[in-house]
Design a protein around this nucleic acid. Structure first.
Lengths: 184, 184
DNA sequence: TAATACCTATCTATTGATAGAGATTTCGTA
DNA sequence: TACGAAATCTCTATCAATAGATAGGTATTA
């Protein structure tokens, strides 16, 4: 069975992806699983600690998924498609990427959490660049892999943000259309 | 000289673009210009009213700038460049687009403000589509104007978000490079 | 006098955080 | 195996700070 710490993490991760770090409180977290707020502080001394835990947990899972994609024996376009589909599954839950959401709240984060956020974006871009470099002959473009990686990631983060407000998936779809046209 | 209402709006707009709607309070707004929080409520009955004012103010100014671009006798690529440069000037101030920031906080907004946000994004996309349709011969791409407009806007919003965290302008630069390659 | 714009004073709710006391479980050692 | 200490987890109770919001009074100006 699932421990309370595990439940707290899962609920908080979801809630932050929906409403941001400022939208949750130790009390609401506690009430959702039927304990007291002081018990939540036992697991997460303060909000900074909670944020760190969530970023690390989210990043771990995310990069594990990226590794799974890299390891496949697929064409580049299939790998990029699988990458984009990670974001589509986030959109289906009416959420943002955790790090995209926290990026909006970056002014409320301490330096160490800002560094973790930055790392998440940089490492994701690096992963894309490496992917592109492994399939140089499947790229139909003069744009540098780095620029392609950077615009792809920020494009997907932005699409999540806007689609949720507009209430459709048109921007993610557009990004998919646009970036798939770069690969044979 | 500037009235207090004007000062409040300007300060709040800036503060929200930096830290989000939940980062400001009626008290902090009041203190910044040396009045009491109850006086702020005189101008803005509640936070929803304040948010509406800010979105309307920001949208007005933004679409005025877009109109100025449309009216120029420029090539398409110059107009797109000018459009992207609006976002660059936002990035220089270490801010987000107001509507991009509020998009992250959309769960905390009421229906009417959500509608205003959605309108901002949709209308901006429409403006880009119209621009593209006015210069069909200057587009080097098979991608539909609509998809191009949607991915450009969400790409720029995402770039603002990520660049601020990473602490450079590389994603905006990448978006610029990528999208400029679509126009002759 | 009526509208505008600000004030004092106050309320209720929520928040992050802490101290210190139980309860339960784990585990090394007699 | 039994015992006691230590670790783990939760509780009650309570702070101080911050928040949005309102009632009713005051000053200034049209």
């Amino acid at each position: 069975m699932k421990g309370n710490r595990e439940k707290l993490e899962e609920n908080a991760l979801n809630a932050v992806q929906v409403g941001g770090l400022k939208s949750i409180s130790f009390r609401t977290m506690a009430e959702e699983i039927g304990i007291k707020s002081s018990s939540v502080h036992y697991h997460f001394p303060d909000k900074s600690d909670l944020a760190r835990t969530l970023i690390e947990r989210y990043s771990e899972e995310f990069f594990r998924a990226l590794k799974d994609i890299s390891n496949k024996r697929w064409k580049l376009r299939s790998k990029i498609k699988a990458f984009i589909e990670i974001f589509e599954s986030v959109a289906e839950a009416n959420k943002l990427c955790l790090c995209g959401m926290l990026a909006a709240e970056v002014e409320q984060l301490d330096q160490s959490n800002r560094a973790l956020l930055s790392e998440y974006f940089i490492d994701t871009e690096k992963w894309i660049v490496q992917l592109l470099n492994e399939h140089p002959d499947e790229i139909i473009s003069d744009i540098s892999p780095t620029a392609l990686a950077r615009s792809l990631l920020s494009g997907l983060e932005g699409a999540l943000l806007l689609d949720r407000v507009v209430g459709d998936r048109q921007r993610l779809k557009a990004q998919k259309e646009l970036y798939m046209s770069y690969f044979s």
